[in-house]
Simulated scan of single mutants.
Amino acid sequence: MIRFALAALLAAFLAFPAHAQSTVSDPAGFGGLAGEAGEQVNVTADDLRIDENESTALFSGNVVIVQGAMELHAPQLLAAYGEGGPSDLQNFRASGGRVDMLFDDQTVEADEAFYDFGQRILTFSGSVVVVNPTGTVNAERLVIDTRAGTSSFSSSGGGGRVTSTFTPAG
């Protein structure tokens, strides 16, 4: 399934080489995140500081976030929660250096990741690199809409481009 999705992405890139942004139905194969979006989120870190006035929790040092088969690593994670306390998680921002996500047989690396739990949208920004067994995509931004099952890669506004390398099957 992932190889087929990447082949569709490659076809889109070849058909429209001058475009700096590409939106294709789940080209990166992250559709499986939708099934895990309601699962429990487990966070481990070296330190945790809760600011009840701001309704935030700051995890720092070797942060690991696990939700189903998705695992995200970051130097720090700022989680914002609602009136229900930490169990009412609204969003999180992983930052402080390189952020890495592992899902199935692929990885995403970026400078920052932001997840909106209400919208179920995961956004990676800053030198994004997606790698799986059949290819690599480089961009400045990757937006994964887990409800719609879509992924969108885009370049920076300064004339940058989305680049990719794929290994053809057979």
Rank of each mutant, 00 (worst) to 15 (best):
A34L: 15
A20S: 15
F92P: 00
I50F: 01
F153Y: 15
G149N: 06
I65A: 06
L102I: 02
A110M: 14
R141W: 01
R93F: 03
I2F: 11
A57S: 06
G29T: 08
R93N: 12
V99M: 04
D47P: 04
N132T: 08
V41S: 11
A34V: 07
G149H: 07
G170L: 09
V63H: 00
G158Q: 14
F114I: 14
S155R: 03
V131M: 09
V43F: 03
G61S: 10
G135K: 14
S127V: 13
L6E: 07
A15C: 01
P27M: 03
L142N: 02
P86I: 06
A139L: 04
S156K: 15
A37M: 10
S152R: 15
N132Y: 02
Q119W: 01
N138D: 07
I144R: 12
A45C: 00
S125Q: 09
G170V: 03
G157E: 08
G35R: 13
L33N: 08
A34I: 01
P168C: 02
V108Y: 01
S164T: 06
P133S: 05
G84R: 06
A113E: 01
Q106C: 06
E71F: 06
G35C: 15
Q21L: 15
Y81W: 05
H73Q: 12
Y115W: 12
A8E: 12
A5H: 01
A69F: 06
L33S: 00
G32A: 05
P86G: 03
A94Q: 02
A57W: 02
N42E: 15
R3P: 08
N62E: 10
F59T: 08
E54T: 15
V63C: 03
G96V: 12
E54D: 11
G160P: 08
L89E: 04
D111W: 05
G84D: 10
A18F: 05
F166K: 07
N42S: 14
V162A: 04
Q21R: 13
F114R: 15
D26E: 11
P86W: 10
T146N: 10
L10F: 10
A11S: 15
G160W: 00
E71C: 10
A45H: 04
G149L: 07
R161D: 01
G126C: 11
